[in-house]
Nucleic acid binder design. Structure first.
Lengths: 205, 205
DNA sequence: TCTTCATTGGACTTCATGGTCCATTCCTAC
DNA sequence: GTAGGAATGGACCATGAAGTCCAATGAAGA
């Protein structure tokens, strides 16, 4: 892709637009986010939006999705790259829950986009699917480490377990929304992680 | 509420509109469903839409949500009212998965609406939350039956287990979408149901 | 048959929103 | 300091979708 000339100042403006759009999408959905509200929130003008995102709203939303995907994985560092022990998994779990709580809204930037965009925009759908796959693969790697450490049944399918964990996160968030509380998320997540510490003697009460 | 005069013919038209709208929402989301496409699909006119749903699109979508909620529970009959044995849970599970497969799309009419409408329409949100709660309560009742039959740990919280199961369904459906397969749903669901048959000697391979 | 009201048809209005265009300002390199 | 291109401002346009209105039709009872 031929990169158009862009200065540092422009890069900052562009990033500001992406982040503000991400906020609004998380709060009001794609449909509830208009270029005008983004413009207002970022103190920019219509021409800037199309200057930095020639493809219009679609391109903007795609960039948001990609950025949110990176953000989400970054928020799980460094544990996401470890997961070689049950303690690491526990730290990872705590950090992830904290991340969602800190956002204030019970919605996953990726999962919520996934349901909204699945039918609308096929390109966006594949972007999101890629993020999901990357995430799942990292979790599966962690499961494999536990298997090699012999603390988890070696015959279990790591991809399957990783998928179950992701499903628990996404579903848990959906149910956390009306409750205005993290407990459904935590309950679902803990249940999904159960197969990973069968050897543990005690469960936290 | 004062019911306006309505004939059988009108009732049928009204129902036709609700069902067609439900289809379109499931396929394209609320935003992707317009009164014009509904009108075309149902061979009706604009005035009919507002005749039967004076509140406009909002009212129509609300009615769809309520109807889909009833449909979803009906589809789980009669098992949803039993769940007094593990075999009944297995039948329930099979029926539910079959229901989603039969719909062709990997989306829960309730869950998908929940994420779309959570921020948009507070009234709709509460309608959906009510459906979710009803569903969860029925599952919790089933868990209690197993506890009374002494096949499940009596100290476990039925509401919590029910919530975990619902989360698995919702999250599993999200992950089933890109896979175009039911296996993530089934994996998540099986894992969520695991606590209900710990006494079983063998797991299905 | 005639009256009445539910039902239906469809043109028209209004408005939000994505997108275009051009002028102006701001940097930076020369 | 000045020329050129990036960055910005904001008016303007096109379109699609929600919602309104009134006239026409159909059916069922008096």
């Amino acid at each position: 892709m031929e990169q158009a000339k862009i200065t540092e100042r422009g890069r900052l403006t562009r990033q500001r637009i992406i982040e503000a759009t991400g906020e609004q999408i998380l709060a009001s959905g794609i449909g509830g986010t208009t270029l005008d509200t983004v413009r207002a929130a970022t103190l920019t003008s219509k021409s800037q939006l199309f200057h930095y995102f020639p493809g219009g709203k679609n391109e903007l939303v795609s960039e948001v999705a990609a950025w949110e995907g990176r953000q989400l994985l970054d928020a799980q560092e460094p544990e996401i790259h470890d997961l070689g022990s049950w303690e690491s998994w526990e730290r990872w779990r705590a950090g992830l829950v904290h991340y969602y709580i800190a956002r204030g809204r019970w919605a996953c930037p990726i999962g919520s986009l996934a349901t909204q965009a699945a039918m609308t925009d096929p390109e966006l759908e594949s972007t999101i699917a890629a993020s999901m796959r990357a995430w799942r693969d990292m979790l599966a790697d962690g499961v494999r480490k536990l298997q090699q450490a012999n603390t988890v049944d070696a015959t279990a399918d790591p991809q399957r377990i990783a998928t179950v964990i992701l499903a628990a996160i996404q579903g848990g968030l959906i149910l956390s929304q009306p409750e205005r509380s993290a407990w459904p998320l935590e309950a679902a997540l803990d249940n999904a992680l159960a197969p990973l510490h069968l050897v543990s003697t005690s469960r936290t009460p």
